[in-house]
Write a protein that binds this DNA or RNA. Sequence first.
DNA 1: TAAACATATAAATAAACCTTTATATGTTTA
DNA 2: TAAACATATAAAGGTTTATTTATATGTTTA
Lengths: 111, 111
Amino acid sequence: MRRAENLASQPSEEDLQAAAFLAKSLADENRLRILLAVSKGKKAVSRIVEELGISQPLVSHHLKELKRALLVTVERKGPFVYYQVADQRVLEIIAGLNDLAAGLLAQRTRF
Amino acid sequence: MRRAENLASQPSEEDLQAAAFLAKSLADENRLRILLAVSKGKKAVSRIVEELGISQPLVSHHLKELKRALLVTVERKGPFVYYQVADQRVLEIIAGLNDLAAGLLAQRTRF
DNA sequence: TAAACATATAAATAAACCTTTATATGTTTA
DNA sequence: TAAACATATAAAGGTTTATTTATATGTTTA
């Protein structure tokens, strides 16, 4: 019996539109860094800005994109706006991408 | 002890470049369909073209992209060129994207 | 209310990308 | 060798996207 974490339905050859859309959201290094930054709890925009060294308008822009993809949730508290990862599964996917990239490069350079 | 399939190193806040690059390769519905088409063994370009109903130059173009990302391997046999998925892990990632998309939408419409 | 601060939005630019149409390259067969 | 077939490449068009700079909106504090 498979464990719950591994439950992954074989995608039918259609409706890959949503998967492609999500992949597009992950297809930017800055967005990945932002996702990891807000993966362990709420974090204000200014905090992300200083931690990552990305300009404030650019962080806001990418957060808007991540929100559009439903990958982050937003919460306003006074003048601060806190963002956090909406579903932890995205972190496993990012880790998977990272591992796969390393594996592919290892195979590549092995010949 | 974690099972091998779940071995996924926590990505460090840097070097997410490779992961972003891979995500970009998955950020197109046609490429996802092509990947699934060549996931169970070698398949010639013409076969992919007729199975998916995508034009031959477009299939060739996307295959070139997938090859650049090391996601498929190529093998020539006479006039035919066979492609297949280079690493099965990409299928788990696609399945994960699919599941996550479904989950996010379910949460979304639940409120 | 004015100043200071946090965040969002807009405009503009340049680069990247998907797709189509047309053509080239390479391989087999008649 | 010419024709037919399989695949790749090139050029072109239109759209999307990442980033910067400038400014607007919204909230707190003096």
